[in-house]
Amino acid sequence: MSALTTRLRGKSELGIAALLGILGAVVLWDGLHLQTTFSQTDPVGPRTMPIIVAGILLVCAVLLAVNVLRGGSGEAEEGEDVDLTHPSDWRTLLPLVGAFVLNIVLIDVVGWVISGALMFYISVWALGSRRYVRDALISLALSLATFYGFYLGLGIPLPAGPLEGVL
C-alpha cells in the first residue's frame, strides 16, 4: 500500500489520463447506441465520427498514463503575470469559484444587478483587495452600467429580479 502511494505521489496528472479515459468511454458508449440504418445518401452514418473521437481519447488516455508513470509531466503554462515558483493558491481560487457558483444560484432569483455586483465584490476580495467601500461602489457601478448598457445599447434584457420596476 505504502509503496503504491509513494509511486503515485506527485502523479496527479494521472487524473487527466483518467478524465480522458472516461470521456472516451462515454463518447464510445453514446456512439454505439446510435441507430445506423445504412443508406445510400449517408454511408458514413452518425456513428463513425464518435468512434474515431473515442479512439483518439482512449489512446491518449493510455499513452498519457504510461508517460506520467514513466516520469513525464506537462509543463504548466507560463504567463506575464504568472509565477510558477509557488503552487496553486487555493485560498484565492476557492472563494473565486465560490463567487461564481453563488452567481449561478442567485442570478435568476435576485437578478443580474445584485448577483453580478456580489460576484465582482467577492472576487475582488478573494484576489486581495481590502478597500471595502471603494470596491462596493465599483461593483455596484459595474453591474448597473452593464445592466443598462445591455438593455439600452444591445436590447438584451438581463433579469432585474426583485428590482423589477425599480430599475
Partner: peptide, 23 residues
C-alpha cells in the same frame, strides 16, 4: 489586478449568460 481578473470573470459571466439568458 483584483479589478482586472475579477473584471474578466465578471464580463465572462455576463457574456455567457447574455447569449441565451439561462443560468
Amino acid at each position: 489586478r483584483p479589478y482586472l481578473y475579477a473584471g474578466i470573470l465578471f464580463f465572462a459571466t455576463l457574456g455567457a449568460y447574455a447569449v441565451n439568458l439561462q443560468a
